[in-house]
Design a protein around this nucleic acid. Structure first.
Lengths: 247, 247
DNA sequence: CGGACGCTTCGGTCGCGGCCGAAGCGATCC
DNA sequence: GGATCGCTTCGGCCGCGACCGAAGCGTCCG
């Protein structure tokens, strides 16, 4: 009854995300692969009946979409906007007070290692490429923009990246995109998309079925080393924060 | 304990935003003006002692920053990222199930009418400008990019917008930015910033003190009509959704 | 110095909502 | 057909946390 947009609605979304079980379910779905109610119950560490209630609420709120298939029900995020919202919250969450628990991550190490972010690369791989190009003076990234240097344009031509390098057209050529898992920017825009496409075309990376994760092939390791100077060390997924004691 | 980034952290952020009182406080602060604990208590419709507890939690979580000034304590959002996160959630919230209550908004009508979004214009005004330029074939907007047409570049030169129109440099020249109050895109990037700056320089719009809201001057109404063909009707702030019954 | 004011801390009440066991329902398999 | 499986609904328990009254603390004023 008081302030802006829709105070009630915001609180409702917040309350929905405020329960650990529901948060776990949503995070499990952020990878893009539809999951059954049972799988989501497992990943939220609750019984099937509890999960069922949560899923009903999330679906009714429009955050999830559901599809029946035989005796299974497959749930997925209702829209990319939901994924985007979750990533925005993760960014803020990761800025929070220091260490904390450090819940060991598992399946999503694949996503941290490398994934697509719509049409460009993110995760450890995406950030490594961005770092390499910046370090070599091929690309400049600012707070909310970026550009290729003459050196960079030459490299792109040689690397055969297709991205209307003569910009001013169609879409943003180069901009930073904050990476929630690395907490540092990777390259988005036409340049990011062109780089990603070229890596796929060269067979350096492959999509994981039904997921946004990508894996680096043997050829990819060699190629990334030669083209960008990215070595195995640059592709190691580090834990969220350094451990106090070794595990 | 299961999936990605930081499941616990996400749930904590969600729980923080899940309480109507806290959501109201954050929304009251999204305008950018620091508010005292008492003002926030009022806008959340709770007593001072209840508000105090909420504010302590929000501050300790790193969402708010506080500054003592005499016997007052001024609270503000700790970072633009927090505002961004809230706007992202509002976008999702506004996509939710149909009408709902429609809590009458008041003070924030000013924000809906026109505001700055970092360095460019948003709200009804920002969207009206974007619509006008698109309709006149001066600008093309795509899902995540955009560009000026030759006609558009001529207009910008005539309108004396300073924005390294020869792009490829520094920052993204033109991209759409989803407007939570209008639910449609306005123009961001160097072009958006240049347009905003020019409107300020011409005295067409003025910043509201300590707020992101902007007001349109008398000269502005005339100028917007002449330069963009934006009439009074285009600047009317419509209710969140059309009313069922007229009020 | 006393009093008003802004804000926080403490203590106790109470209701919302998460949880699971048991039961119900539909689909699948043999 | 019966057995099994995936999921949902129902009912009851229980704990967390939002709320306010009262009291405490620091600041400003006359």
């Amino acid at each position: 009854m008081s302030s802006s947009g829709s105070p009630v609605a915001l609180a409702e979304i917040g309350a929905l995300l405020g329960d650990p079980a529901r948060a776990n379910m949503l995070l499990a779905l952020i990878a893009g692969r539809p999951l059954t109610a049972g799988e989501l119950a497992w990943s939220a560490r609750v019984t099937a009946q509890t999960a069922s209630g949560h899923l009903a609420r999330l679906t009714e709120a429009g955050l999830l979409a559901v599809e029946r298939q035989g005796r299974h029900r497959y749930y997925r995020l209702a829209s990319p906007l939901v994924a985007q919202m979750l990533e925005g919250m993760q960014v803020v969450a990761s800025l929070q007070s220091p260490p904390r628990y450090r819940p060991a991550s598992r399946i999503d190490d694949a996503l941290k290692a490398g994934r697509t972010c719509y049409d460009h690369l993110a995760g450890r791989l995406g950030v490594a490429i961005a770092d390499a190009m910046v370090a070599r003076g091929q690309v400049v990234l600012t707070g909310d923009g970026g550009a290729a240097t003459p050196d960079g344009e030459a490299f792109l031509q040689h690397f055969q990246v297709e991205a209307s390098t003569r910009p001013g057209q169609k879409r943003c050529f180069c901009r930073p995109c904050l990476d929630w898992s690395e907490r540092r920017p990777h390259i988005a825009g036409a340049l990011g998309a062109g780089l990603a496409r070229r890596c796929f075309d060269l067979g350096w990376i492959q999509r994981v079925k039904d997921s946004r994760a990508v894996t680096i092939t043997q050829a990819g390791r060699k190629g990334l080393q030669e083209a960008f100077g990215i070595g195995p060390d640059d592709l190691v997924v580090r834990p969220d924060l350094p451990l106090r004691k070794a595990g």
